[in-house]
Every structure is written in structure tokens, then in C-alpha cells.
Computed example of a mutant assay.
Amino acid sequence: MTVQVNEDGKLKCSIEYTLRKIGGKWKTVILWHLGVDGTLRYNEIRALMPGVADKVMSGQLKELEEDGLISRIQYETVPPKVEYSMTELGKTLMPVLREMHRWGTEQE
């Protein structure tokens, strides 16, 4: 296991770091859909995830964007159009997400 020391001098591990980026109930699901389905609009993601509240999903999308895992493009149209897609960094998570998908499918 890789253990790192952050700027506070506290120990942290690579799993902790990863969970800070993709942890939360919906981030991995959002990443999975963008990785498998490609670029999606907000309402398309929303339709794939009926159990998530709008406020929560907006927050999760914003955090994923801030962490550089997804990109958000807003088109100046009426009505406004926003599309989300995985960044190159986000795509590096696909092997992990595929393995999670495989494991979950086997356990169902």
C-alpha cells in the first residue's frame, strides 16, 4: 500500500485520495454512464438516475468537473444546452469502473 504525507504532515493513502475524488453515492454512477454512453445532457443523465435529487446531482457533477474528471460545455442557445463528458483523466478510471460493474453483476 502506498502511504503519502500531505502538507499537514498527516498520513494519507491512495485509496483515501481516490475516494475523495469519486466517493459519494452518485459520482461513480455518473462516471459510468458518461464512460459507457458518451457525452450526455443533464436531463439524459437525470433519466438514467431516477433516485438522485436534482440538488445532489448538480453538486456531484460540479465536484467531478472541479476535479477534472468530467467536462461541462454550455451552449448559448434558447433554451440553454449543457453537455457533460469524461475528460482524458476521467477515462483513466474506466478499468476500475468496469471491474466494479463486473463484480456487481456477479453478485446480483
Rank of each mutant, 00 (worst) to 15 (best):
S71H: 04
A53F: 14
G35L: 12
R102S: 03
E44Q: 12
G68R: 12
L61K: 00
E44C: 09
R46C: 04
V5Q: 11
T28L: 15
V29P: 04
Q4T: 10
G104H: 03
P79G: 09
I70N: 03
Y75L: 02
R46A: 02
P80G: 05
R102V: 07
H33Y: 09
M1H: 11
D54K: 06
T105Q: 03
M100T: 06
I22E: 02
L48Y: 03
T18N: 13
T2S: 07
K55A: 15
I22K: 11
V3E: 09
T2Y: 00
L11E: 05
S71N: 02
E99T: 10
L48P: 08
L69Q: 03
K10G: 07
G23E: 08
R72T: 03
K12R: 14
T2F: 03
D67R: 15
V96C: 11
H101Q: 06
W32D: 09
G68A: 04
I15S: 15
G24N: 06
D67A: 10
L40N: 06
T92F: 14
G24W: 08
R46I: 10
G51F: 06
G38R: 13
E88W: 10
I15P: 11
V3G: 02
A47Y: 04
R102N: 05
E108T: 12
K91T: 01
K25L: 08
K21T: 08
Q74V: 00
M86A: 01
T39M: 15
I70T: 01
T105N: 06
L34E: 00
E106M: 07
T28D: 09
M86F: 04
S71T: 07
T92N: 12
M86G: 00
E7D: 13
C13H: 13
L93I: 05
T39Q: 15
G104V: 02
R72N: 03
L11A: 09
V36C: 13
E106Q: 08
G38I: 14
V52M: 12
L93S: 07
W103N: 08
W26I: 01
T87N: 04
V56Q: 14
P95F: 00
Q74N: 00
T87P: 01
V29W: 15
M1Y: 10
G38Y: 14
T87V: 03
I45D: 01
Y17V: 15
K62H: 01
L69K: 06
P95T: 00
I22R: 06
G38C: 13
